[in-house]
Nucleic acid binder design. Structure first.
Lengths: 108, 108
DNA sequence: TTAACTAATCGCAATATTACGATAATTTAA
DNA sequence: TTAAATTATCGTAATATTGCGATTAGTTAA
């Protein structure tokens, strides 16, 4: 079918999956790393940094915006992208809790 | 195209993306949570727990095995799945470093 | 051996994703 | 106003993902 059965899972599960899915592409990891390390965050700079076309980069930015990890402020003709601190910290906590929930081998 | 330009990104970027992509489905999050909380980890128990068919669950297990987060020991007619501690800790570290790399708002 | 059980794989259909060029929308500069 | 620059969106093609039923492969029990 190609259609995830979202309604069969909990909100937590769907939210975590949505977040990790958004990070699940090397271009989007690269965008995040670039936004973390640079002070400027003009869209054009991101396009220049990535080995992808402008329209493709724009799509990846949209996906990261969808989950809220980044936000874009329109500033004249350009758009200034950056990490959304609040959502970032929430995501960090959620993913951290998942990884921390495993303590030690149960079997095998 | 539908084909990620893997070769244009660094190994770190591809590895992180591959890992988060594997976590990017609610069924796979549910599987991980189930393996974390239960002591038993028989494949059939996972199938019973999830609202998906046996073949679909098997596919999700395969994806998690592909990135190494879980491993499956064939034990007679059943297969015993569990978290792979070593890969888990590596993944935890890699994702943790990504989230920790962001310190404070740069702009916007 | 046969039968029952477990789990992986195959084949298929529906939908999603990735990527690009072209176009549109917006803003600034001339 | 016109032209240039920036970014979003549209349309399209190729590939990937999700899900299921059916089948296959393997093991155990009778």
């Amino acid at each position: 079918m190609g259609l995830t059965k979202t309604e069969e899972f909990t909100k937590t599960q769907n939210d975590l999956a949505s977040l990790t899915k958004a990070l699940g592409h090397p271009a989007r990891i690269a965008i995040i790393q670039f936004l973390v390390k640079t002070k400027s965050c003009v869209c054009g700079d991101i396009v220049d940094e990535l080995p992808l076309s402008q329209s493709t980069v724009s799509q990846h930015l949209k996906e990261l915006k969808r989950v809220g990890l980044i936000k874009g402020d329109i500033d004249g003709p350009t758009t200034c992208y950056c990490i959304d601190e609040k959502v970032w910290n929430k995501a960090k906590k959620a993913v951290g809790e998942l990884f921390d929930s495993y303590k030690e081998p149960n079997c095998c």
